[in-house]
Simulated scan of single mutants.
Amino acid sequence: MHLISSAYAQSLGGGSTMASLTQFAPLVLIFGVFYFILIRPQQQKQKALKASVAAMKRGDRVITAGGILGTVQKLREGTNEVEVEIAPNVRVIVLKETISSIVKPVAANDSKPVAVVPPSKVS
């Protein structure tokens, strides 16, 4: 009398390595897709933000994580604090880590050109 089924006996050690590899291939593929679509671009974005915050100077317009828009008035040396003016004569001190973006001003000649509509033809 056989107490162990043949399928169970094969799974105990009679299976091939290739079969177990094909089981993990979809998981590796899914992780690879997630890495290149989600994780890597986010890391690059954080790296660019960190570089722009490190290069921040007086007069730059910034947006904090709380959504406050202000102008950098003073960078405090030796600390991670920045003095930001959020309204005329209203200054707050924020941490560099809370700055979510630096707003680049648009120069007058860099703005979008206005589309010129040609006059209709008179026949």
Rank of each mutant, 00 (worst) to 15 (best):
L12Y: 03
G13S: 04
G15H: 13
G15S: 15
T17H: 03
M18G: 12
M18Q: 14
S20L: 09
S20H: 12
Q23F: 08
F24K: 08
A25D: 06
A25C: 06
A25Y: 02
A25G: 09
P26Q: 01
L27P: 00
L27Q: 03
V28H: 01
L29F: 07
I30P: 05
I30G: 10
I30A: 05
F31T: 15
G32P: 08
Y35W: 11
F36T: 13
I39V: 08
I39S: 05
R40P: 07
R40T: 10
P41S: 04
P41G: 01
Q42I: 11
Q42N: 08
Q43S: 05
K45F: 07
Q46L: 14
Q46A: 12
A48D: 11
A48M: 09
A48N: 11
L49G: 01
K50V: 13
K50Q: 12
K50P: 03
A51H: 11
S52E: 14
V53C: 00
V53D: 00
V53P: 00
A55E: 12
A55C: 02
K57P: 05
R58P: 02
R61T: 13
V62Q: 00
V62K: 03
V62L: 00
T64N: 03
T64V: 03
G66M: 10
G67A: 05
G67K: 07
I68W: 02
I68V: 09
I68G: 02
